[in-house]
Amino acid sequence: MADQGPMLQPSEICNAVFSACEDKAELPFAKMLVLGILAGLYIGFGGLFATVALAGADAVPFGLSQVVAGVVFSLGLALVILAGAELFTGNTLMIGPVAAGRLPAGRAARALAIVYLSNFVGAALLAVIALLSGLHEAGDGAVGRAAVNLADTKTSKSFWTVLASGVLANMLVCLGVWLAYAGQSVTQKVIGLMLPIAAFVAAGFEHSIANMYLLTYAFLVQSTVETAPTLLAASAIGANLLPATIGNILGGALIALSYQAVYGQPKRG
């Protein structure tokens, strides 16, 4: 596809993102719900792709396998941006127009809450469908083992480690969204978002919506994995998601407020 024009400049990106955030917060409940479920599914597809990439990667150098997993995981945000969906972590950028007086805080909080819960529905739904598809049996069970080992690593971290990791994860996710808005063509948007997403996955940072899929899927398939390191309890999922979510909000706020301070504009019209 031919380029549609030069990429936007930083001030133009800021206005485009904040305007989009205002529009997102004003979506009707039903549309927000459906688009939130789709985003949970889409990010789940990225997690599914990354899990397959990690399956049987024991013979591959750690850094290389992580980078490959990160690159393929970027499918999730590409689907959200290009196909259209409402993703909680990216939508934390709403904090920017709230600070600029362009969006009421209550409206932004309502939108974020609806999208967060609907993202969970979509991610959990994909985990159930993936289980029923027998994906965990692929590679003589390598996919199932990779999913359980990844979940064990995530749920073994302390509250503060996950929180700090969540901050870094969503800084990169929001930068991926930011760069995607800079692009004027599909190619520009995909290239813009890919490296930040690959970086957060490769580093093992904690993304609450991705973890909704990854941990739920591991919980469902762990009984099929004979070498599962420990039994993953449902409470462990919540113990990871709480600090990851807080960290994601803080990371999104850091990006949004920084650019608002430099390029923020008053309320439209």
Rank of each mutant, 00 (worst) to 15 (best):
I237A: 00
T216D: 08
T230F: 12
T187P: 06
S235Q: 11
H207N: 05
S235M: 07
Y213R: 09
F205P: 01
S208K: 03
P243F: 07
L232W: 01
L193P: 02
I255E: 03
T227F: 10
G204T: 01
E226K: 14
A198G: 04
A253K: 13
L195I: 15
Q188D: 09
T245H: 00
Y213K: 06
Y213G: 02
L254V: 14
A256M: 11
F219C: 06
A256V: 05
F219D: 04
I246T: 00
A218R: 12
G247D: 02
L241T: 09
Y213V: 05
G251S: 04
A202S: 12
A210T: 09
L214E: 07
L195M: 14
A199G: 05
E206F: 00
G192C: 04
I209R: 10
L241N: 11
A218Y: 04
L215D: 00
A234D: 06
I249T: 09
I237M: 01
V190R: 12
L254W: 12
A198L: 11
Q222C: 11
I255A: 06
T227R: 13
G251C: 10
A180E: 03
P229M: 03
A236R: 14
G176H: 05
P243Q: 08
G252Q: 05
I197S: 06
G204L: 02
I191P: 05
A218E: 10
I255K: 12
A234G: 09
G252L: 08
F205I: 00
V221Q: 06
V186M: 06
I191N: 07
L241V: 07
A233L: 15
L250H: 06
G251M: 06
L250Q: 03
V186F: 05
I249P: 04
A180M: 07
G176V: 12
A256P: 06
T224H: 13
L242I: 15
G251K: 01
M212I: 05
N240R: 00
G252D: 01
I209D: 03
G183Q: 11
Y181Q: 09
L242Y: 01
S185R: 12
Y213C: 01
L214C: 04
V225N: 03
A233N: 14
Q188N: 08
N240Q: 09
A203Y: 01
A236M: 13
K189A: 08
N248L: 12
Y217D: 03
V221G: 02
V225T: 04
A253S: 04
I197L: 14
G176N: 09
F200E: 01
A253R: 13
T230Q: 14
Q188R: 12
A233H: 15
A199R: 10
V177Q: 07
W178Y: 07
T230D: 12
F205M: 15
V177E: 04
L231V: 15
L241C: 11
F219H: 11
